[in-house]
Structure formats: C-alpha cells, structure tokens
C-alpha cells in the first residue's frame, strides 16, 4: 500500500477563462461569460503540478457561468472524456450526432477515437459545475462513441455505485477505467476493493472523509496504489468519486 500523492483543493491548478480576448473563439458566451477550472493534473497552461496518474491525464473541476458560457465546438482524438454534472445543466453537442442535456447526477462518456468534435455549453440560468475526466484509451483511433448515464443518489445512498466499468448497470467502456461514486452518511465506513496492480484516485465532491487513513475535505483528493482494500470512513455526509486505473 502506498499513497502516491495527496492533493488539497487549494493546491490544484487554477484557470479563469473568459469569452473575450485570445480565447474568444474557444470560449462561448456573452462578454461577461467566465469558466473557472481547478485542475488536479497538468493541463494547458498549468504545467507545474502532477502530470497524471495511471491512464488519467485530466481531472478538471469546472464552473461555467450562465446564459451560454462554455466551450465552442472543438476537435479531439483518442481521449476518453467523461463529464459528471454536479449542479446546473450541461448542453453537450457532438459530431457523432448527439445533442444532449445533462443535469445533476447525469454523466456521459465521449470516446473521441479516430476524431470527433464537441461543444459544452451552459445555456441555463444558473452556474454549471461539472467534473471532466480524460483517460488514455486502450487503443488509438477507435470508432468514436457517446454514452450517458445517471447516478441516482437516493437509490444508491450508502453504497459504492459503479458508474463506468464492467459491472452491471455501469456504462461499459472497456478496461481503461472504472469510475464509482459514493454518497455516504456520517459515520458510515465502506471498503472499496481493488487490485494491487491498479491505482485509485479518490476525489471528495462534498463533505469530509477519511480514506486509507488520510482525512480529506471538500475537493481534496488522493491517489493510492498497491491496495486490495481501501477503507473509506465518512466524517460527515460525503459524496465522492473513485477513479480506478491501470498503472
């Protein structure tokens, strides 16, 4: 067992993107539109942090201001991009031919493969908070795909629910990653079972939890390797994401 790193919320990279100036074609929205991005790993202009963990290259905690702010249509290849909506509404448009609206609890997996474009927009009246996860694929230039799912917080209270992976009811995207979510009441302890050959990145969305002996607050995270079982103790009502990756 070993802790690869502990990353406190305030230690993450921070970017503030506006829809005017150099990013005017990339960032959608009216002149006051703003995207804030907290990056757990190096991304774009933030290059002084952690490069990645296993197959994970991007873990962005982003807030889009209302009334049209977001990313205009832009190209991708290869990366498997997942979005988890925490609050507000995300309008996703892609070149596979999908126009989708996702709200709190909804998530998608867009595998860009041999090439695809997408736009990510907040056309609602309130802030959108969304987590973006980018993972290296197991194969390059695969046919692009898009799937969506929903995390039912009430139906999954106090259990580790697999959102993306090989388990029943989860979105299957091959062996690249497994993503689980735990919405947990105070005082409950859970065990996440994994394999020593894999790594787990745990990110606290809300609340405070003790994970493998380390206390994490809201938006803190840590990465673990060499584990067979990871103990997660809720010190308050907590909500967290667990991303399991090959190393």
């Amino acid at each position: 067992m070993s802790v690869s790193f502990v990353l406190r919320a305030g230690e993450r990279g921070f970017s503030r993107l506006v829809s005017t100036g150099p990013n005017a074609t990339y960032v959608a929205g009216h002149p006051d539109g703003v995207i804030t991005r907290h990056s757990s790993f190096n991304f774009h202009e933030y290059q002084s942090g952690i490069a990645g963990f296993g197959s994970i290259r991007v873990f962005g905690d982003e807030v889009f201001s209302p009334n049209g702010t977001g990313y205009n249509m832009h190209p991708h290849h290869n990366f498997i991009i997942a979005a988890f909506v925490l609050g507000g509404a995300l309008t996703h448009v892609n070149t596979i031919g999908k126009v989708d609206e996702l709200r709190a609890g909804d998530f998608y997996v867009f595998s860009a493969g041999s090439g695809g474009k997408h736009a990510e927009l907040n056309i609602g009246q309130e802030n959108l908070n969304v987590i973006y996860l980018w993972v290296l694929p197991a194969r390059l230039l695969a046919p692009p795909s898009y799937v969506r799912g929903h995390f039912d917080a009430k139906g999954n209270a106090n259990r580790i629910a697999c959102l993306i992976g090989d388990e029943a009811d989860a979105l299957p995207i091959g062996q690249a990653i497994k993503v689980s979510r735990l919405a947990n009441e105070r005082g409950r302890t859970h065990v996440y079972r994994t394999s020593p050959s894999r790594g787990v990145y745990a990110f606290v969305l809300e609340g405070e939890a003790e994970i493998a002996g380390t206390v994490l607050g809201r938006r803190d995270s840590l990465a673990l390797t060499g584990e067979e079982r990871i103990e997660i103790a809720a010190r308050s009502a907590t909500d967290l994401l667990l991303v399991e990756t090959r190393l």
Binding site: N42, F43, H74, H76, H77, N78
Partner: peptide
C-alpha cells in the same frame, strides 16, 4: 514511436 497531444488527443 507514437506521441499524443495532451491538449486534445491528436496522435503523431
């Protein structure tokens, strides 16, 4: 060898 753009996933 192959190289991947970490900004968008473009591969060389």
């Amino acid at each position: 060898k192959k190289y991947l753009c970490l900004g968008c996933g473009f591969s060389y």
